[in-house]
């Protein structure tokens, strides 16, 4: 159960936080790096450089619902997602990867990154189970914090994006 104190709700009455007020790219990058080292491998470095645009993209994401509501979305190329899956499965990696394996592994990375993003946000929030496929579109361009990273030379982007449209100007 979530109880929000009156003071917090009153502040909420005046404005709604956008993600850039709550977290920065460096924090997201560091969360992602920790997840990569633990899940993908100790030597697996994420380089904070934009790479080639992703062809055949696939996304995995979790939703966060609380004082800030939105999604933590990882996007990369399908082949890179498969490579990540093999790295996670290590010796259990099958010769032919099923879509289900990729959804499981790539979804679990989003879950770990998303869970830690959630923990870095103020207040108490809920976290959804991971989803994999075509990413939800950002609703409000001001409510997005995105980092572009390179893993083994391939682009992996992480977008922490709000689910609420911009407020009307008044």
């Amino acid at each position: 159960m979530t109880t929000i104190d009156t003071g917090e709700r009153r502040r909420g009455a005046e404005s709604r936080p956008v993600i850039t007020e709550l977290i920065d790219g460096a924090t997201i990058e560091s969360i992602a790096q920790d997840a990569w080292i633990a899940l993908v491998g100790e030597e697996e470095v994420l380089v904070p450089l934009p790479g080639e645009p992703v062809t055949d993209p696939v996304s995995s994401w979790v939703d966060v619902v609380g004082p800030w509501t939105g999604s933590v979305v990882l996007t990369t190329g399908r082949r890179t997602a498969e490579e990540l899956t093999r790295a996670l499965l290590q010796e259990h990696s099958p010769e032919v990867l099923e879509d289900e394996d990729v959804a499981d592994a790539f979804g679990e990375i989003a879950n770990v990154v998303g869970g830690n993003v959630k923990a870095a946000l103020p207040g108490s929030s809920g976290l959804s189970l991971p989803d994999v496929g075509e990413a939800p579109a950002p609703r409000n361009p001001d409510d997005v914090c995105r980092v572009d990273l390179l893993w083994r030379g391939e682009t992996v982007s992480i977008s922490v994006q709000g689910a609420l449209p911009a407020l009307p100007a008044h």
Binding site: A35, I37, V112, G115, K118, L127
Partner: peptide, 24 residues
């Protein structure tokens, strides 16, 4: 679990969990 906030740790302990290991 991927959710290692103090709130989750407290909930876990109150329910009788011995520990909570946060992912990663």
């Amino acid at each position: 679990t991927s959710e290692g906030s103090p709130e989750m740790r407290e909930k876990a302990a109150n329910a009788g969990a011995l520990f909570l290991i946060a992912k990663p």
